[in-house]
Design a protein around this nucleic acid. Structure first.
Lengths: 249, 249
DNA sequence: TTCGGGAATTGATCTGAGTCAATTCGCGTC
DNA sequence: GACGCGAATTGACTCAGATCAATTCCCGAA
């Protein structure tokens, strides 16, 4: 629980705006709602930010300055206690959007979660004010944001089921399937092959277990031939149905 | 786990539309986004539905026909497995909105959760098509729906922390505080007094424990003078800070 | 190619919450 | 007021997963 690292040097932020037309997530992200004309407005207010693994984008409790798109890499969204217990409440993959405007109890807009890069991370940042203005101008943008938020909500509740009612083995199997889905590296006919973006400790903090339990469950799944591994990070499975079977409901 | 009851007679649905101007949640619900002129459109497509405790509004997997506002009463949102394990992923109180349009894997719009009345429940129903049309016409409505959805997401993630990392005692304390908040029956200066809307089994299914553990934790909190009870449902607490202290982070 | 150190695995033991099994409570009905 | 019955509490025991403690693995640097 609470398996943190730190990074001395600061994340890199470029001064000049991103170039939307060349963006890796131009169509799959929120920006897909805008035509190439319309997106110029967004382009104008955007800037980039690069983070190395372990670097923090925002801290829980900071006041919320920006929205952002994930352009490359994976990040984790986390909530933690002083005593080291921490829960990863979500993962961010390329084309995911950061920062529904959350109003805290005091009425201030504050970041509800700490966001930390898990792999080299590229963000496309939009200042809050400018972005909210554009939300008013382009209803399609707002519609799409609503869609995304609803999906996130759906997923969060799915995870509540996992955390509230699934066994250790079911949690690990579910997690593997979930990441496989997100990485979309599965070959055809029910086989997958991909690198886990998270270390064991982060997996544990995401599915509500300890490092040791995660490790033991993976070992079991491996020994029973339900998954195969190359090193500690690369996962293979030739029988996805068997894996789904282990994931429970 | 999975502490269900059933109800033989069907919920009552009225033919004639609701009367928005006389609605108990006219301003606190989503409808607060609309002026008294604008709300006529909504009024036209609305109808009412009454459910007794234990009656089901929609089943998980049904195709999604309607949106709705909760006008009176409390309902639970749940996800269940065949083997009886079930997780309550949310509670609905008066003025809460039902049914962000969820797109299932197959592209069909289906209900993601079973919704069951916990106390006598009054709903104000809007057919999907008509409501979505109005979303396009009144941007304020869509804005407010986004706000609500973001709040729900925030709450769901809060609950992930509870389910993933809190102890039994912390969960029970957190739950009591959460319901107290929702019922807004707290007197002044840090005291609360209200009826629990849920039976022990439902509490257990919401906070990821068993009936027995919930009961033991409540007993403990009572014996330590952190809460007081009148019967099994009515909770009092004169020292809200002490209770917050038990709720963990 | 070796070396060093964090990450992962494995093993032994402990424990918080689950399970199974009686009571007891509380409330609605007669 | 007594009865009946589902809900809640309480107790004894079990067990899945946590904790504590060694290894072992793996990968990057020299």
């Amino acid at each position: 629980m609470g398996h943190e690292k730190a990074s001395a040097i600061a994340p890199y932020e470029s001064a000049e705006p991103a170039i939307c037309s060349a963006c890796a997530v131009r169509n799959s992200s929120l920006c897909g709602a805008l035509s190439s004309d319309e997106i110029a407005d967004l382009n104008n207010i955007s800037r980039r930010k690069s983070l190395k693994p372990g670097q923090i984008h925002v801290f829980e409790g900071d006041d919320a300055r920006d929205f952002a798109n994930v352009t490359q890499g994976v990040a984790k969204l986390m909530r933690g206690a002083e005593d080291g217990r921490q829960q990863i409440v979500g993962l961010l993959f390329p084309s995911d959007f950061i920062g529904g405007p959350m109003r805290s109890a005091s009425g201030e807009l504050t970041e509800p979660y700490t966001i930390e890069a898990v792999s080299p991370l590229e963000l496309c940042i939009f200042p809050r004010g400018g972005f909210e203005e554009l939300l008013g101008v382009y209803p399609e943008l707002e519609r799409k944001l609503l869609d995304r938020t609803l999906n996130e909500l759906q997923l969060a509740r799915e995870w509540m089921v996992l955390l509230g009612r699934k066994t250790a083995r079911e949690r690990v199997a579910t997690f593997i399937l979930h990441v496989a889905e997100k990485m979309r590296n599965h070959g055809c006919h029910g086989a997958i092959s991909f690198d886990l973006p998270l270390a064991r400790g982060d997996i544990a903090d995401h599915i509500g277990l300890t490092i040791e339990t995660v490790s033991r469950q993976i070992t079991q799944l491996r020994k029973q031939g339900i998954i195969d591994m190359q090193g500690a990070r690369h996962i293979l499975s030739y029988d996805l149905d068997a894996l789904r079977n282990e994931a429970g409901f």
